[in-house]
Design a protein around this nucleic acid. Structure first.
Lengths: 113, 113
DNA sequence: TTGATACGTAGGATAATTCCTACGTATAGT
DNA sequence: ACTATACGTAGGAATTATCCTACGTATCAA
């Protein structure tokens, strides 16, 4: 629910790499993720926990293994967060944008340059 | 260029709020941003520095004031990062998943519009 | 039952983040 | 020149993040 957890979870390169693995290679047990990581297995477990708390990952227990799978739904929130910024990079491409920026920045010394 | 700085910059709620202010209210001097923040002015300056290092904000000196403006270009990188995950929530839109989602997730206005 | 396997959790060292209060610097106004 | 304003930076306290090694627990295989 809280966007804070989501952004915080994505702030770590290690956790983004874990997400990428799950995305490209499908659901996997924790150990398999860890063995290709330059990091101890318990640390990977910690990262997976953070991802789980952010709702980005879900686990399914299969015997003594725990399969982790990507849960992309929270990323919709990220996409929604991004939306109101879209007009800024679209406007950037027009000459009109510069004019509008100047008008809202300051109405006074337009000729100073 | 480094996505790490970008994600790290966005991890802080205070910095996201600053971005929102610059987006909704246009470029402003640092002090005006700070005075509506429940945070000391120097701390806001620090946050602005982090945003600047991430390329999300640019400053223009006007006399003794420094106007900060939103620089949305780096957010394109975030959008690109998001792209390969899109198919995952698209797959979830099959009839069965949509039903399950509605039951477990929320009664929100996803479909209400 | 015994031993190995697949994990998570505890505890701790170190580093990074986040906030503050001083203080320094440059500009503006008088 | 002198004071006020708008900032950033220094330095430090408190918190949180990030990694590790040890250890505990559940499952599987014999």
């Amino acid at each position: 629910m809280s966007a804070d957890h989501l952004f915080a979870a994505l702030a770590s390169p290690a956790r983004r790499e874990l997400l990428r693995m799950l995305r490209d290679e499908g659901a996997q047990p924790a150990g398999r993720l860890a063995e290709r990581f330059d990091m101890s297995r318990p640390s990977v477990s910690e990262h997976l926990k953070v991802l789980k708390d952010a709702g980005l990952v879900a686990e399914t227990r299969k015997g003594r293994e725990r399969h982790y799978r990507l849960e992309a739904a929270p990323l919709l929130e990220l996409r929604d967060w991004l939306t109101p910024y879209e007009r800024f990079w679209r406007e950037r491409l027009t000459a009109l944008d510069a004019l509008l920026d100047d008008m809202e920045d300051d109405m006074e010394d337009e000729d100073a340059r």
